[in-house]
Design a protein around this nucleic acid. Structure first.
Length: 559
RNA sequence: UGACCUAUGGUGUAAUGGUAGCACUCCGGUUUUUGGUAUCGUCAGUCAAGGUUCGAGUCCUUGUAGGUCAACCA
């Protein structure tokens, strides 16, 4: 066995360097810090796989920490969904924690900062403060309240905490440097008044800490060694370090923030705000609509955790902007399902075939493997009778040699059954073929071992017996957007690129063995693609989602 | 007219001063009772210009292009 040397990504490189410089392996600790204000998507999966993957690689704990400092947007529903998604992806956290666990500690530290003259209460409006903030190219100016006495600041901050002030009237600010080249260092807000009910702390607080003040301190409290986030937080790093330095005890580990590029996928959008918009405006049917790039949407669509993990690993991480081809994601799920999904037969666009030399009331149950090319899948009986359905596109009255499906006077193999020959067809007033009359070769049954069964016939078709067929609703999905980067246009709104045909609902016929299939059972519909049972399935209505179609070289040739 | 980050085939990523590799996509061959799978192969890349070096995708300089930063969001 040759040991394949796998190169390290740049985050692993940083960790290896830290280890080489004396950080002991047992100090390694990571966290995944979602804000519970929306559902997780495939971009988050990159972060989840990265952080939990590092935990696995270095045998280090990984916390799931909800960054819940803004009660105006956050809800328990999201907390629950996020936990479910992380677990479904196959990862095990060390602890579930909440930034809100640290509200008291954060408050106490804030009081210390005030006492040290490093924080002050500002009474201005946000507009006034924005004006003083300057711009990236112009320095800011000091607030008139910047030099209040410690006593006054302490008194005001207590009154903020006690609910004496209305929202928007007072904030606590760190006193850093209004002329700093990094705007985040220009006296950032630490606390604002928010008289909102919090999903965990209820009405205990009416002041809430801001992200920057909370995040680094939370990392420090949990002794996170490497706090990994996305690139847009790069310029927050100065502040992160400044805040940590205010409370840092040198006997403890000092966490460090490092940033990587968020993962984008072609033909979709990845911002929570935009996804929420699609949900709220009814473009899709909820966060778990199978067209959504959310984890729950992909799950419902039929994706497996393993495929998503493989995708994340294969796509890798770096620090440059990217748009990963959705074909890579599709490749990962096809590759997984090809190895795991049983093969069954379903006809999505049926036309009736009558086998004229097959007895009227005869029926047979043919043994059909769930997978002809792999062990362990077993088989099931598939009913055959005089009338069957095949796909409309699998028949042509006449066609050239390249079309090796059913055509008049030519033969094809019916998968798991007999070789048939088309003799004639019936058409309606529009010239549409409504029925095809065939004869079958009685000795040609698949697997019978007879001479006739071994005959080489170019085409093989899938089919379903008419009188045994189960009706099923099949939801055929296409990409949600027609543009590769729908939100990459400065002059156009992403919604202008919504694909009007992203959902096609079909009344199909499936083989009877599928009658008892359960939610999330995954199958390959022979020659068509991979499908899974949707949660909308009821006793009387079987519903399948098309996860992804099979590669179709014939369709490409036809173009 | 600032600071910071990033530039490698169509896409995503390796190469840690020493043969530019892998995966996906595309295209073609072989196999095939799925026009699937498998397998073999083709096309295709270091942003530019200087410099350092025996040797530069990698280091330096200067450009160019893209991105980020001015929420009481995270």
């Amino acid at each position: 066995m040759s040991e394949e040397k796998k190169s390290l990504n740049f985050i692993e490189q940083i960790i290896e360097d830290d280890l080489a410089n004396g950080l002991s392996n047992d100090k390694l600790r990571f966290r995944f810090p979602p804000e519970p204000n929306g559902y997780l998507h495939i971009g988050h999966a990159a972060s989840i796989c990265l952080n939990f993957g590092l935990g696995l690689k270095y045998n280090a704990p990984v916390n799931l920490r909800f960054d819940d400092t803004n009660p105006a947007k956050e809800e328990q529903e999201y907390v629950d969904a996020i936990q479910q998604d992380v677990q479904w992806l196959g990862f095990q956290w060390d602890k579930v924690l909440y930034s809100s666990d640290y509200f008291q500690q954060l408050f106490d530290w804030a009081v210390e900062l005030i006492k040290e003259g490093k924080a002050y209460v500002d009474d201005q409006t946000s507009e006034e403060m924005a004006k003083q903030k300057g711009t990236p190219t112009e320095v800011g100016t000091n607030s008139p309240f910047r030099d209040r006495s410690v006593e006054e600041n302490l008194d005001l901050f207590m009154r903020m905490k006690n609910g004496e002030f209305d929202e928007g009237t007072h904030v606590l600010r760190a006193k850093i440097d209004m002329e700093h080249v990094n705007m985040h260092m220009r006296d950032p807000i630490m606390y604002r008044v928010l008289k909102k009910h919090h999903h965990r702390t209820g009405n205990d607080w009416c002041i809430y800490p801001m992200y920057d003040w909370t995040h680094g301190e939370s990392d420090y409290l949990e002794q996170i060694s490497h706090s990994i986030c996305t690139l847009e937080f790069k310029s927050h790093r100065d502040l992160y370090d400044w805040y940590v330095d205010q409370v840092y005890d040198t006997s403890l580990l000092r966490p460090k923030q490092r940033e990587f590029a968020r993962r984008n996928l072609s033909y979709t959008v990845m911002s929570k705000r935009k996804l929420l918009q699609l949900v709220e405006e009814g473009v899709v049917n909820g966060w778990d609509d199978p067209r959504m790039p959310t984890i729950s949407g992909l799950r419902r669509r039929g994706y497996t955790p393993s495929a998503i993990r493989t995708f994340s690993d294969t796509a890798g991480i770096s620090k440059r902007d990217n748009v990963t081809d959705v074909a890579l994601l599709e490749h990962c799920i096809k590759d997984d399902l090809n190895k795991t999904a049983p093969r069954v037969m379903a006809v999505l666009d049926p036309v009736k075939v009558v086998i004229t030399n097959y007895p009227e009331d005869k029926e047979e149950f043919l043994d059909a493997n769930y997978n002809d090319y792999a062990e362990g899948f077993g088989s099931r009986p598939v009913p055959f009778s005089r009338e069957i359905y095949i796909e409309k596109e699998d028949f042509r009255e006449q066609a050239n040699k390249k079309f090796f499906r059913l055509k008049l006077d030519k033969e094809v193999r019916l998968k798991n059954a007999y070789i048939i020959k088309a003799n004639s067809c019936v058409k309606d007033e529009n010239g549409e073929v409504t029925e095809i009359h065939c004869t079958y070769d009685e000795d040609s049954l698949s697997g019978s071992g007879s001479e006739a069964s071994k005959r080489k016939v170019k085409g093989t078709l899938h089919w379903v017996s008419v009188k045994h067929a189960e009706k099923a609703e099949v939801r055929v999905y296409d990409r949600l957007f027609t543009d590769e980067a729908p939100d990459g246009h400065k002059d156009k709104d992403f919604k202008e690129f919504i694909n009007p045909d992203s959902l096609n609902v079909i009344n199909a016929f499936v083989e009877p063995s599928l009658k008892d299939a359960k939610e999330l059972d995954r199958f390959q519909f022979q020659r068509l693609g991979y499908f899974c049972v949707d949660k909308d399935t009821t006793e009387s209505n079987l519903v399948f989602n098309r996860t992804v179609p099979l590669r179709d070289s014939w369709a490409k040739m036809e173009k």
